[in-house]
Structures are given as C-alpha cells and as structure tokens.
Amino acid sequence: DDLEQFAKQFKQRRIKLGFTQADVGLALGTLYGNVFSQTTICRFEALQLSFKNMCKLKPLLNKWLEEAD
C-alpha cells in the first residue's frame, strides 16, 4: 500500500537526516502554518491515524522531506 510504504520511507529518511518527530511537527508549522504534535507524527509513522488524516499529512511530509534534503 502506497501510504504504508511512504510512512516507512519517511521514518527512515527522517532518522537518517537526524530529525526527531517533534522537529518535523515544528518544521511543518514553520513551513505551512500547521504545527503538528510529536504524537501526530508518531501515529503517522505507525499508521495509526485515520486514512483521511494520513492522506492529508502525506503531501506535507513529502514536501518537508524535499526541503530537508
């Protein structure tokens, strides 16, 4: 599944880049005006958010990865 794959890759890249889940949540706030909690990022990576929320977060996290690289 696409979302599952993305969540896995996101977590690996985030760790490799040296960011915590909280860092990502704050960075999203800075970039897009939407601060996300560490818990939200954690749940995303664990696929524990609703499908709708996963779909909403994915493009933001994808963009963040591009910026962070």
Rank of each mutant, 00 (worst) to 15 (best):
G25S: 12
E66R: 11
I15V: 08
L47F: 09
F44E: 00
A46D: 05
N53M: 15
G25R: 09
F51T: 14
V35Y: 12
L49W: 13
I15M: 07
E67S: 15
Q12W: 11
A27E: 08
C55T: 10
F51N: 13
L26Q: 14
L3R: 00
K11Y: 03
A22Q: 14
Q38P: 13
L3F: 07
Q38T: 14
W64T: 00
N34G: 14
Q21W: 09
A7L: 01
N62W: 03
D2Q: 11
R13T: 05
A22L: 06
W64L: 01
V35F: 10
D2T: 14
L60W: 10
Q21Y: 11
N34H: 12
Q12M: 07
K56H: 05
K58T: 01
A68N: 11
G18P: 00
L3S: 01
N34P: 15
N34A: 13
A27C: 15
G33A: 08
L57A: 05
Y32F: 13
N62E: 15
K16L: 12
C55P: 01
I15H: 01
L26T: 06
A68Y: 11
A7C: 10
Q12S: 11
T30Q: 15
R14K: 00
W64P: 03
L57M: 09
N34C: 15
P59I: 10
T20P: 04
L61E: 00
D23K: 03
F19G: 00
A46E: 10
K56E: 12
T30A: 14
I15A: 03
C42Q: 14
N34V: 10
D69L: 07
Q48T: 10
Q48A: 05
D2N: 15
T39R: 12
C42W: 08
V35W: 11
W64C: 03
M54G: 02
Q21R: 10
L28T: 02
T40H: 02
V24D: 01
R43D: 07
D2L: 09
F10A: 02
C55R: 15
G18Q: 02
G33V: 00
F44M: 03
A22K: 15
L61P: 00
K16Q: 13
C55N: 12
R13N: 04
A27P: 02
T40E: 10
D23N: 04
L57S: 05
T39F: 06
K8T: 07
M54T: 03
K58W: 00
L60R: 06
A68L: 03
A68H: 08
C42Y: 14
K16T: 14
Q21S: 09
L26V: 11
S50V: 00
A22W: 02
N62M: 10
V35D: 14
T39L: 10
P59E: 08
K63L: 06
N34F: 05
L26F: 15
W64H: 02
L61Y: 01
P59H: 07
K56W: 06
A7Q: 03
L3W: 05
K8S: 03
R14W: 00
Q12E: 13
G18L: 00
G18A: 06
T39V: 09
Q48M: 05
E67A: 13
C42R: 14
K63M: 07
F6S: 12
K11P: 01
M54Q: 04
N34Y: 09
T20E: 03
F36S: 08
G33C: 01
G33Q: 09
E66D: 15
R43T: 00
A46Q: 09
R43S: 03
K8V: 07
C42G: 13
F10V: 01
L3P: 03
E66S: 06
G29Y: 12
D69I: 05
E67R: 13
Q21A: 09
T39W: 01
A7F: 04
N34D: 12
Q5H: 09
A27T: 07
V24E: 00
F51Y: 09
V24F: 15
L57R: 03
F19P: 05
G29M: 07
K8W: 07
L47K: 11
K8A: 13
R13G: 03
Q21I: 15
D69N: 10
T30Y: 07
S37T: 08
I15N: 07
L28W: 00
A22I: 08
L26Y: 14
V24C: 06
Q38L: 06
E66M: 13
Q21V: 13
F44K: 04
L31C: 10
L26C: 13
G33T: 08
F19E: 06
L49I: 00
L49N: 05
G33K: 04
R43L: 01
I15T: 06
C42T: 11
A68G: 05
A7P: 03
C42E: 15
A27W: 12
D2Y: 07
D23S: 03
Q38S: 12
F19A: 09
